[in-house]
């Protein structure tokens, strides 16, 4: 009995001790979160500020009238372009991107239709309110869409394009994805610089806005673009055939979901494949499964702006492409298993 009492007493003491530690920790947390001068401290208030800033950037990309020039670099390649954006009084968004080096390629987006013009090839229109190719589509949406698998952290921005910036870092919660650094104009909330990097910090792609001018109205260069004839809209073949090889990845990075699946032919090469597209909201991975004899590629893995892995699984050629580390692709490919016992082999 006495013994029991003693134990109880001991427990109470440890409890008191514990709660005072918790209190101390809370106090520390409060103090550090109020000290804004410390960058990269993942506290709640920092997190909220960073999310708010990200959302403001997404809105700025949709709502600002601006004229900008920028350079995209990856590896040794530099691509300068002009980037005009505006909103007509009726609320229709208009965006024009012109490549300044090499073939004269332009992208013109008016409202929900984006047209891709090219000098020697067929121009086409896609029904989409995001211009593909410059920024990830997720940058035009609120951060909540990426919330569970990415976090955004604020930091102190440096001067970019002659303007003061805030700095945001978009980190995946695991090391299965690439990270982004964003420099956002303090005044307009416009994205002025972007870096895409490996979890180890190697930079794979950069965008740098070199001139940026905000306008009252739609930039003059686009005042009459609504009169420009649009190339034909691209329609998809709706009667997709189901996958035939029934080989599917058993491992996906957290948050990746299947967007499309079917049996079709690869563009250009025309190889018949089972095709799967996975996305986590920010980045996408394509997986192709086809006959090994027909394809004949050696096992290989390359990391870059777009990584690619090719390997043989169960006598089938499996190829994965996507803006993720090559290790992630390899792991997905290695996890390919037959999903049905009566899977048809070629």
């Amino acid at each position: 009995m006495n013994n029991l009492k003693q134990q109880h007493h001991k427990k109470m003491i440890t409890n008191a001790w514990r709660s005072s530690i918790t209190g101390l920790l809370l106090l520390c947390g409060f103090l550090s979160s109020s000290a804004i001068s410390q960058p990269f401290q993942v506290t709640d208030s920092n997190q909220n500020q960073a999310v708010a800033l990200y959302d403001e950037m997404a809105r700025a990309l949709r709502e600002l009238n601006f004229e900008a020039t920028l350079v995209r670099s990856s590896g040794t390649r530099l691509e300068p372009m002009t980037w005009l954006h505006g909103v007509y009084p009726d609320g229709t968004e208009v965006e024009l991107i012109v490549m300044l080096n090499g073939p004269d390629m332009r992208i013109l987006r008016i409202g929900d239709d984006t047209s891709y013009y090219e000098p020697h090839d067929e121009a086409y229109t896609i029904h989409s309110d995001v211009t593909f190719g410059l920024l990830p589509a997720a940058f035009y949406k609120n951060f909540s869409e990426l919330q569970p698998h990415y976090q955004v952290v604020g930091g102190r921005g440096v001067r970019v394009s002659g303007r003061n910036t805030h700095f945001l870092r978009i980190l995946s919660r695991d090391n299965d994805r690439y990270h982004y650094g964003l420099w956002i104009d303090v005044e307009s909330k416009m994205l002025l610089k972007m870096q895409m990097m490996t979890p180890q910090g190697d930079i794979l792609e950069q965008l740098q806005v070199t001139t940026f001018v905000e306008r009252e109205n739609v930039p003059i260069g686009m005042s009459d673009v609504r009169g420009i004839p649009r190339p034909p809209r691209l329609y998809e073949v709706r009667n997709l055939r189901p996958p035939q090889f029934n080989l599917q990845p058993q491992w996906l990075p957290a948050g990746f979901e299947l967007l499309r699946a079917g049996h079709r032919r690869v563009a250009d090469s025309g190889l018949p494949v089972d095709y799967y597209l996975f996305s986590d909201g920010l980045t996408e991975v394509s997986i192709y499964v086809g006959s090994q004899q027909q394809q004949g590629l050696p096992s290989l893995a390359m990391q870059g702006r777009e990584s690619i892995v090719n390997s043989t699984q169960q006598n089938l050629a499996v190829t994965a492409v996507g803006k993720v580390p090559v290790t992630t692709l390899q792991r997905m490919v290695d996890s390919m298993r037959a999903v049905e016992p009566n899977a048809t082999q070629p």
């Binding site: 989409s128 593909f132 998809e236 563009a267 190889l271 996305s279």
Partner: peptide
């Protein structure tokens, strides 16, 4: 050429997927 065709196909599918989402 083969590798490039996969890359090309990937970006085509991304555009079509954007359209489908829209």
């Amino acid at each position: 050429r083969l590798l490039q065709s996969y890359m090309l196909d990937h970006s085509q599918q991304l555009q079509l997927s954007l359209q489908a989402q829209q």
